[in-house]
Amino acid sequence: MFLKIDNINKTFTSEAGNNEVLKNVHFDIKENEFVVIFGPGQCGKSTLLNIIAGLEKESSGNVYLEDKKVTKPGPDRAVVYQNILLFPWLTVMGNVEFGPKSRGIKKSIRQKDAQEYIDLVGLNGFEKSFPVKLSGGMKQRVGIARAYCSKPKVMLMDEPFGALDAQTRYLMQEEVVRISAHEKRTVLFVTNNIEEAIYLADRIIVMTNCPSTIQKEYVIDLPRPRDYTSEEFLRLRQEISSIVEFTR
C-alpha cells in the first residue's frame, strides 16, 4: 500500500486532564488518489495531518509511506497550511525554490523547475514580489507551488482555503482540480466544507468529532469538472450532511 495509516491514536496530556483527539484511525491511500478528510469541528483532523507530516508524535499506531515508517518531517510529504506560512523575507521565487535549495540543488536547475510551478499556479510575472504585496488567494497559490516544487510523494493540505473569502475559495478549488490533473500526486486534503469535499475528492473519509474516528467512507466517481448544482452532487451533499453531527 502506498500510504498506510495504521491504527493511530492520539491523546494530549496536560494539567487540565487528558484530551483524546484521535481514536483507532485506520485507512489506506492508493498512489495518485485524492482523498478528502471531512468532519465538523476543530478536533483531530489537523493533528492527523501533522502526524503524517511527522511534525507531531502519535500516542500509538504507525504511519507507513511506501512501507517505510514515518518518524520525522521530510520533503516526501509536503504540507500546505491554512495560514500559508510563507517566508516573508523571500520573494515568490525564493519561497518556491526553498525546498530544492535546502537540498543543495544547482541554481539553474531549481529555478527553472520553480518557474514551471509558478507558471502552473498562474503567478507568472510575480516571481520577484514579496508575500506582503500578494492577496490571500495569491499567497495560497505560492504555498501550493512551494509544496509541489519540493517534489513530494504526498501532498498534505490542511484546510488550505479556510481563511479565504467565498469567491476566492471557489476559484481555488477549480485551480486545485486543474493543477492536480496536470501534476498527478497523492493528496490528502482536510476540510470542514462539504461542497469542497465533494468537488475535489476521489474518496471522502468522514470523521466524527472529539475523539475523531472514521465514521464512513464515500467513493466519489462523478466526472470532473464537477457541477455544484447537479442532481448527483446535491444528493451526495444531502446524504453526507445527514450523517454528520454538528456540535454547537
Binding site: 518531517p73 526553498f98 535546502s102
Partner: peptide, 25 residues
C-alpha cells in the same frame, strides 16, 4: 515556530534552520 515547521517539511536540515529561517525573520 510554525515557520520552522514549514522549513523542516520542505527539507531544511536542523543546521540550516538558523541561517535560512531564524536569522532572516
Amino acid at each position: 515556530k510554525n515557520l520552522l515547521g514549514a522549513a523542516r517539511m520542505l527539507g531544511a536540515k536542523e543546521n540550516q534552520l538558523f541561517f535560512k529561517v531564524v536569522l532572516p525573520s
